[in-house]
Design a binder for these strands. Structure first.
Lengths: 342, 342
DNA sequence: CTGTTAGCGCGTTCAA
DNA sequence: TTGAACGCGCTAACAG
């Protein structure tokens, strides 16, 4: 077994209390005593027992993060990068991070949150991929449990979230296409229950309407954010006598799938068909052709959304400014876009 | 605050002990009493306090997983998939999973493990990307702390690990190239301190030697397992009057980087240059051209390596057969390979 | 069947 | 400056 305060106390001949205080750095313990205790603790290889400390402090110093993901082959770099951001920030505050993966909007997911919240496994949770009417957020608000989210929602209430201005991002992307001369632009949206799908759509519509362009109803379609999904949906778009000359995808993965579909139809991406993604995962640059995309600083967002939660847990109040942070995305033009009939 | 056993006891007029036992399902409590207690607990919304339970049981019911990763832009789908496998298996046993990301072979990484082990944060840990002389494994063995790993090492001692037979994987890949007529094959290995780099190299060498082919020293090179790394190293290989006609990369990400480099040199992948990856991440199929690669069942491996750890923690003995499980990889031929000068 | 006692390891009174 | 006593919430040994 490992060394406890009691063991040290026995060794140095002081009480457990004194040892505890010496090690905690209280100033009401004799300098001499402290030195002895600290040194002995060191020698004996003392490590505080976290569980005991947590029970006593009624705090877990742990954050929870449930990744919303379908099926086994979950491998969106988006999440890896977000996780790294959250994890590193948490570590810098000496907090543990509890991670699990659950399919979104399912009983299993709800249970996962209940576990974290009701059984006192974590002090706060971080959400991502928020839904328009997000049951998770409703639940957390109702339980009055600390959380922050990457993504806004329509759920009423006060809570802190970070988001990327997806509307302006897609607006810029669309404008880029229009400036290149495109008029027949299709959009592959994220699943429609996701909040960011709404903003993306708004940005697209605004850009098209501003230029007096009409949106063909069948050219608004949504995909599941995987390569496979983007591929399937793009085939559908292209398998038609009247094809769009450009496609804006909800993320880079779907854009890559769409590019593959285009190749299968004998189209050269960047010439016969322009494709734009969203995220700028490392792969975007290495895809063929290199993918024009809208970059969002995922890692930084991860850090930020975690930092906000930490602040809340420390009891620091967040001003309403801090509560609703909107990052600006940035259009990165590469080779997958060009003039139509280019 | 939340409901405790004490609250329930007060409510039903029994002792805390009885309540505890009733809820735990012991059979030494009157059926009548049990019903009352269970129902009351339900009504009051009782949830056991995990920290208290953990302190008492001296078990955390938590597993630790430290992802070895460089820098912020960590986004290898390999890890996502492994994480999903581990996480889902852990969840099925009602275990929590503590995740962090640390640069491999650094003091920060060592500290992360020490934290987990010495402060009793987890009951066991899972390793991946094992190194030839892996300090983590040496440490865990020395501490006699339960762990399993994805990947073998040269560290002496008894421990359970799962691995993929990388040697046979690369052997098959190389043979595939040779059968296509390639003689000038280069290999981009994983970093040389990683154990699986050794097996990959052995497989390559064996295949080449078996066919009486010589390996050009400058065509054995290693990269950092990112697209960028593969790109840089491949440029180096191709920036030469004498070029290989085929490249085997240490993973799919590097293969994708290599394909990009090839394009920049005006080479058509699958014709002028063949490229093979390793992993078969979802992207491999959607890359252009679709990537020939060696598939390893990462998700399943994640589940398995976790299941082994769970077994150990339950005190079940692992037979030496179970201790060293070797999965068979499978060559998936797609479009990035073809006859030389094809 | 049920309650009393004890203790997991730590931090925090309060009194000496 | 130090120590005794108590509690965090739960489980286990033992007695009745």
């Amino acid at each position: 077994m490992s060394v406890t305060l009691k063991d040290i106390a026995k060794q140095v001949g002081f009480s457990v209390t004194t040892v505890s205080r010496a090690l905690a750095g209280y100033d009401d313990v004799a300098e001499e005593t402290r030195r002895l205790i600290v040194q002995t603790a060191e020698e004996m290889g003392y490590r505080p027992n976290v569980m005991a400390r947590r029970l006593q402090k009624q705090r877990t110093d742990t954050l929870g993060f449930v990744i919303p993901t379908f099926g086994p082959r979950f491998s969106d770099p988006f999440f890896s990068e977000l996780l790294a951001g959250i994890g590193n920030e948490a570590a810098s505050h000496d907090l543990d991070l509890l991670v699990s993966t659950r399919p979104p909007d399912t009983p299993e997911e709800a249970q996962a949150y209940e576990r974290l919240v009701r059984e006192g496994r974590v002090d706060g949770v971080i959400l991502t991929r928020t839904r328009i009417n997000d049951a998770r957020i409703a639940y957390l608000l109702e339980q009055n449990f600390p959380f922050t989210s990457f993504g806004r929602t329509r759920v009423a209430g006060e809570y802190a979230c970070v988001d990327v201005d997806g509307e302006s991002g897609v607006f810029e992307a669309t404008r880029h296409l229009i400036e290149l001369g495109h008029r027949d632009v299709a959009i592959i949206l994220p699943p429609e229950d996701l909040m960011f799908s709404v903003y993306r759509w708004n940005g697209f519509r605004r850009a098209m309407e501003t230029q007096g362009l009409t949106i063909k109803p069948t050219w608004k379609i949504s995909g599941d954010l995987t390569e496979q999904g983007g591929y399937a949906v793009a085939r559908h778009l292209l398998n038609n006598s009247q094809r769009p000359t450009a496609i804006i995808a909800g993320n880079d993965l779907m854009a890559i799938g769409a590019m593959r579909a285009a190749r299968e139809y004998g189209l050269i991406v960047g010439q016969d068909l322009s494709v734009i993604g969203f995220d700028d995962i490392p792969l975007a640059e290495h895809a063929h052709p290199a993918l024009t995309t809208v970059r969002q600083p995922i890692y930084e967002i991860g850090r930020h959304v975690c930092r906000m939660l930490v602040k809340m847990l420390k009891g620091e109040y967040l001003t309403s400014d801090e509560c609703q942070v909107l990052f600006d995305p940035e259009l990165v033009v590469r080779d997958s876009t060009g003039p139509p009939f280019g």
